[in-house]
Design a protein around this nucleic acid. Structure first.
Lengths: 205, 205, 205, 205
DNA sequence: TATGAATGAGTCTTCATTCAT
DNA sequence: AATGAATGAAGACTCATTCAT
């Protein structure tokens, strides 16, 4: 390895690092102020640079959310696929998916908030068709788990699975809006309580 | 009643009606596009008038959301107060509050969507401090019901009531984003299934 | 005279009276807020009617200032012409013109304020060429008095009459901006002191 | 000085220079068209840029007049304070204040025109309370000079000093509306003739 | 890499004016 | 004569984006 190559390698790594850093900042700001209401200048301020300077790193404001969301979704689907591909029963799959979801919130909180708040509006844009696709897969995945559980006699049959699916989906993701990594409850503990509540209900025996 | 009085009465009523009509339209648009992302022109288009014409009826875009949200919240608290003031036990109160909430969604769907999506951002504005106040009351009301239920042995004691409160709050309101008045399930039926799920869980006996 | 004619006569008189009343109100508002900064609605408010209603009486906002200014200027020139046509010497003419000017301020204060503040801007509009013409006549009138006085040995010859003219003109009219009809000094008393100051100076003997 | 420091110094200076330049342009336009009647676009046109570009340099149209007026007033009061602090007699103080005033007009003509035409309207805005304060100080300063002169037997006692003060104030400032730096009379010459007129009167001996 | 300055399209809002009643 | 509702043009201001340095 020539010094030149080592240099450019470390430069490329540094550049990638800077990019990731900037995206983390942007995600934080988009999540707290709302994507539409956030100005590029606000993101730049938070990153300690001037508005125009961001355009050296990204093509547009849209490109930033795009990268934030697609990075998160790619990782999320990898985790979900690992779960659904491991041949677990419905109840165990339910358990694992919920747990993974709260871990995602832990790891990608701002991205999840953006996903939750802006998906519907962004989805109208051709650039974000993958969001629509992701929502469709999400729905199918959950309905399949729920239906499997009902068939196996693990879940009640007198409830509308479409309705249950929506309740689960919403409650899980919306947790991103109040979750703090440094709060008293860990992501796994929250998942555990959530599972208890949904599976057994809050009624005392 | 003299003709004069009937006239002015019908005029005032017509004016109030137009105002309500316009607010309903605005709420619909704000809910579907997002408040910040909605232009005044879009609201006006939906109402069949020009952008500037809205200002004959309202002081500002902000004044419109304000009226939409405060009208909804006033009615909502009247309903909640009726419930909490009627001396029911924790479980019955839980039941009644959930049912009322879904009825609110049925009656004020767009307002609830706006409340859900924009409250956090609007609350920073002094004009909307009543939102913060409403959120506080909401929290206290639910925590009191949950705590009462735990003490009475009606609800499980091994779950974090703060967490349960958040799950309930989010799931109930977020339902506004997919609820359609003309869907296959009525608001009361949705409430019923939701109550079953949360109280008894989805596990089959 | 038939009753009909009497009726229409009194109606016409009433209409003219209302018009004058409205113009007086408009002049007051234009004078205090500035013509450009005054909205038609503000004038209407002051007159106790709605914005659109003024258009029953006047063609436009511009038509209002027009009538305000031309009425005032017509009366002013009638008074000035009476003075300059009465064969007085320079000093007496000076005296009389100043006195008449302060009387004008007394009678037409708001109109004078508008004239003072807006003439330059309005003059660009073809409708108001009479303002330019009036300013020209005004200048000629004063220069003629001053020149006549210098030639007659009544006024000092070592001062620039163009300059003196401007000082006189400005000070006289600008007085409209602070003059109150109910103040401690009458218009004639103010004129007297002004004449003393300009003719004899403020130095003690 | 390192090149770095020279660079940043020249940059800062250039920025301040541009700002001053833009304010001079804005002042010219505000003075000739009137503040309320001037559009931001007109100012931008005169500066050779687009309307929105001005907002890179200034927060608002209001911020521009603010800076124009406060810069002028700061300098003006420095000059007046120098005069009143130098222990001159009333007559000499009178002389010096008038001279300084015309020099101000020479140096800040557009600002003075704006001050003269818009002060009353702007003063209602909390941002411009310093205008009210400045007017108060101005009045006190002149009354004190005039009263001192009367007591010392230098000025006539049979005139109302409040009236004289107003005449002086108005005439001096209103001169800004016709003064041209390139006219035949210098600021000092105009001041001299003005002083002669007011102190000795225009009557020939 | 980042800055400073500018662009230009678009946003909210204002306001003179119109017109059916 | 006056109201209520709307028009439409224009105005102040914002903001994503560009680009020379």
């Amino acid at each position: 390895m020539s010094p030149r190559r080592r240099d450019s390698a470390s430069t490329a790594a540094a550049r990638a690092g800077r990019r990731t850093e900037l995206l983390a900042t942007a995600a934080e700001v988009f999540a707290s102020r709302g994507y539409a209401a956030t100005t590029v200048r606000e993101v730049a301020d938070a990153a300690g640079m001037l508005g125009g300077s961001l355009y050296y790193h990204f093509d547009s404001k849209e490109a930033m959310v795009d990268e934030i969301l697609s990075t998160f979704l790619t990782d999320m689907w990898a985790a979900y696929d690992r779960v659904t591909g491991s041949g677990l029963g419905a109840r165990e799959t339910f358990h694992a998916l919920i747990t993974e979801s709260f871990r995602m919130i832990d790891r990608y909180r701002p991205a999840v908030v953006i996903y939750q708040n802006e998906s519907k509006h962004l989805a109208a844009n051709p650039r974000f068709t993958y969001l629509v696709e992701s929502m469709r897969r999400f729905r199918e995945m959950w309905l399949s788990v729920l239906d499997r559980g009902v068939l196996a006699g693990e879940f009640r049959a007198d409830l509308d699975t479409g309705l249950i699916y929506r309740f689960i989906r919403d409650t899980v993701w919306v947790a991103a809006s109040w979750y703090r990594g440094d709060g008293p409850l860990s992501a796994d503990e929250i998942a555990r309580q959530y599972i208890v509540m949904v599976l057994e209900g809050i009624t005392a025996d």
